[in-house]
Write a protein that binds this DNA or RNA. Structure first.
Lengths: 175, 175
DNA sequence: TATATTTGTAAGTGATTACTCACTGAATTA
DNA sequence: TAATTCAGTGAGTAATCACTTACAAATATA
């Protein structure tokens, strides 16, 4: 990975997250990355290839984040860590662009990517089962849906307090 | 409102909901509406004007839908009607394009439009207060967030069963 | 050191973009 | 009836789009 290739990825991630995929022109990316426009096509083939590279890199990071939850065996800890993740993934400036891009792309391309969340959903289902909940699968689904709703608000509504609501949600489960 | 102006609005609503605002060209809209491209600019000034007209028309319809809930005084009925709306607004083929556009536009333009939901949130807060809930405002916020999460799934994840989850959510409140 | 490969650039390409302009024909108004 | 407004068209516009190509410089390999 050369220096300029890395710069292109960073610039594209930021611009895609800000403006969306199709509305962001390759010339704008090149300018922001301080490289010639042609270099983008040398390294990534076409615009779609650039997006793919960004998403692929992000998925690696997501897997690492999820691993901590999926490998946990204590059910109450699984749920606690899930809420911890929810408020963290949304609050760390570092990865903000990446997560925002995930949702933006979802709506622009109209694909949900269920498989990414599957291990998380399974871990939660199992945790609720151990805790004796009547419908553990639906409980898990509901939590993930809450996460989508929170993300929607966090990224689109300024001055939205996530922490307050995550805490409130967490307290609804007697743990 | 002439016949052709109406056709432009309908075609634009459909295309914006399908492809997004910026990726939909005015020439494509004109073709779908079977009018000359110039007519779009005659009636709406520019592309943004066309979007504004669509959103404005939709807001009127939303107000009517919300009115039934906001005017209800019986707290349990307020919540029941809210869940009824949630599964309905998401399932009626008729208005599907409009609601889908609402979310697409939110992510494309990064504006949430909190004011639209305010009367609904107030009605829910009041209902939870009457029912003796400890934190009625947060309960109301949570319900609206659930709605956003459900919409995300419904429009982006094929084969997603809304009704099942709405019922499950509803049953969580002892009514 | 000589040769090949990779990394990078500048200047293009045709297609498409939002939008304008000069012009009709029909309906309204004076 | 004469003048004016309105709805609608089709052929333009400059700018921008994703992408290509020819070529130079740097780097790796022999």
């Amino acid at each position: 990975m050369t220096d300029k290739k890395e710069k292109i990825l960073q610039a594209a991630l930021k611009l895609f997250a800000e403006e969306g995929f199709r509305p962001t022109s390759t010339s704008k990316i090149a300018k922001k990355a301080c490289v010639s426009e042609g270099l983008i096509f040398r390294h990534f083939g076409n615009k779609d290839g650039l997006l793919e590279a960004i998403i692929k890199e992000g998925e690696e990071q997501a897997k690492i984040l999820f691993a901590d939850i999926v490998l946990e065996t204590e059910p109450k800890e699984v749920i606690r860590k899930f809420f911890e993740l929810t408020s963290k993934f949304v609050n760390t400036k570092d990865r903000e662009d990446f997560w925002k891009l995930q949702y933006k792309i979802k709506w622009e391309m109209e694909i949900y990517g269920e498989h990414k969340m599957e291990p998380l959903q399974l871990a939660l289902t199992n945790a609720f089962k151990k805790l004796g909940y009547e419908k553990p699968e639906l409980e898990a689904k509901l939590l993930l849906i809450n996460m989508d709703g929170l993300a929607t608000r966090f990224y689109l509504q300024k001055n939205f307090d996530v922490t307050e609501l995550v805490e409130f949600m967490h307290n609804k489960y007697e743990l």
